[in-house]
Nucleic acid binder design. Structure first.
Lengths: 334, 334
DNA sequence: TTGTAAGCGTTATCAA
DNA sequence: TTGATAACGCTTACAA
């Protein structure tokens, strides 16, 4: 067992006190001679000294850590989100600990407890399995900052969101502009608030234009979209499909292909999210693009700001969505 | 700021010493009266006492944490791997901290340092940017267990691997069986050891069968595969393609589609990995399937066993790969 | 059956 | 310019 190099060893080697070492290593060493400073700094590298995190945090009372809870890391949307969070966390010397709760309320609670035990400074929660219960029971009593995004909405507290209502409208309007009059919407069987708004935007636009809509419910996965095609083909007269996320759209591609139905000739298809994969399937997927990485970045920024500055007033970030027309939609022709 | 409840507060409230509390809460309290025990246990819940992780680990010298370093969480291969690791970690009360190093050596080193600082008990490293240097400089001196998988190979130390050489052979043999005599291989411009073996298996099988092979180098991403199609179409007489991972294959689909070339009519295509997406693109991707989640599980098991049991002899796990024939390959016809 | 006290590796206060 | 020393909250020998 190799003993870890401690600050004591380093001090001894440098012929100084631990105070000196600590101060110098923490950028508070102006008062020491540049000779001492150099000696300590060199020795640190040479001896490969790494401060003990537990000891440090014990006294500092901060673990420089944020927790991140997503429903599923495998979903490209969330892996991009994580990318953004990771980048900002790093800039601020924070470490994100990421968990995939898989929509399992029990698992979600378990992980949040673990995170709290480790005295994380804050949490970004993009998974909504058991949120409000957990917040009241665990987060609030322990005074832990949190930011709810994506699947959660809050009236109070900081907010980082995209305009889902407008996004829904954009999608509908695009289809309507192309002349579609009967549209199928594939939506989750378990709608979270952001999805609900997205859907409302879509529906309202259709209503205003007297466009007929059909609703198909399925899990928001490739498999869900794939299986929902069975219902889709039973609908008569439908010429366009809106899937509430891109991943479902991928399943629809497959389901249609198996039935020898063509996109966009037989069905125009528009998704939502703007994941990278949409540019690689053929035809390329028309979609409503959310600035996913940016969402991750902003989320981390807002949370960290809240952590450093608990009294700051409600922060609100609203990110734009945009229609990206690619190849999966076209003008209707009779 | 709510002050956290400490063991001292709890002891005081219970009218005992901290020792008593500590022992009882850690399941070592047999010697105390059941009355005292009950009192402490109740108070713990009542006062919402959560042991301070930093203080505890400082003295226990273990953070019940493992670090996981992957090149890219966005890649479905790695997100599935993580799924497996997470499952086993949880069973063993460990927390995995996951980082995406993006093949950036500096970033990789930075994260490993952070992980070591936090006194993780061990590391699963599936990213190879700067591994050997980091191991010698950081891991070994700090006596941290590690397991290298996927992109790394080791002669010494524990091993969890799939039979890449055999997998390569399987892929080649499938194509050969279908009558292909000129095959393009799309491979990374930066081969790691597992890939090298995979490739050797493929090449050896081709050589043995006098099958002609062409080599195209590109990044192992969708984009890489997509752009490599430009080179591919310049090759004359090629009827089949082997991409060294599934993700590249996705790019190839797109590149071919844009040139009006059909899979499998114009080119048979076989990938490697067995990610879920392969079942959703059309035609479905024929591939060599690795048991990815299982790899994650085994990796975690092996590492945790090593942590609990540093003296145990070299552990070796070899996981099977298998040919999954789907729709992207077919018998050659002239 | 219970408690005292040392010690984990750090940072911070204050004296030298 | 530097260094003792207390403190952080916990576990654990060792006493009682």
């Amino acid at each position: 067992m190799v003993r870890k190099v401690t600050i004591n060893d380093l001090a001894q080697a440098a012929g100084t006190s631990v105070t000196t070492v600590s101060q110098i290593l923490n950028g508070k060493g102006d008062r020491f001679s540049s000779d001492t400073r150099k000696r300590v700094l060199n020795l640190k590298v040479e001896m490969n000294y790494v401060p003990d995190f537990n000891a440090r945090n014990l006294i500092m009372k901060s673990a420089q850590t944020i927790g991140v809870l997503v429903p599923n890391v495998g979903n490209p949307f969330f892996s991009e989100l994580i990318k953004g969070i990771q980048a900002i966390a790093r800039e601020n010397q924070f470490i994100p600990i990421i968990f995939s709760s898989n929509h399992d309320a029990e698992l979600e609670k378990y992980y949040i407890e673990k995170l709290v035990e480790r005295s994380v400074s804050g949490l970004i929660i993009a998974s909504s399995a058991s949120t409000s219960e957990v917040i009241d029971e665990i987060l609030k009593p322990n005074n832990i900052q949190y930011l709810l995004i994506d699947e959660n909405t809050v009236e109070t507290g900081d907010t980082v969101e995209t305009d889902d209502y407008y996004g829904g409208q954009l999608a509908a309007q695009h289809l309507i502009d192309l002349g579609h009059q009967k549209i199928a919407m594939m939506i989750s069987d378990d709608l979270t608030n952001n999805l609900r708004r997205r859907l409302e935007g879509f529906k309202d636009s259709c209503l205003k234009n007297k466009t007929e809509i059909f609703q198909i419910e399925a899990p928001m996965t490739k498999k869900g979209g794939y299986e929902a095609v069975a219902d889709l083909v039973n609908l008569s007269g439908v010429t366009a499909i809106f899937t509430i996320n891109d991943e479902m759209a991928v399943g629809v591609y497959r389901g249609l292909w198996e039935r020898n139905l063509k996109i966009p000739e037989d069905f125009s298809l528009i998704g939502y999210d703007g994941i990278e994969w949409g540019e690689y399937i053929s035809p390329k997927l028309t979609t409503i693009k959310q600035p996913i990485v940016e969402m991750g970045k902003k989320s981390a920024e807002v949370l960290l700001n809240r952590i450093n500055n608990p009294k700051v007033k409600k922060q609100t970030v609203n990110l734009p969505v945009e229609l990206v027309v690619r190849e999966s939609t076209q003008r209707i022709r009779k």
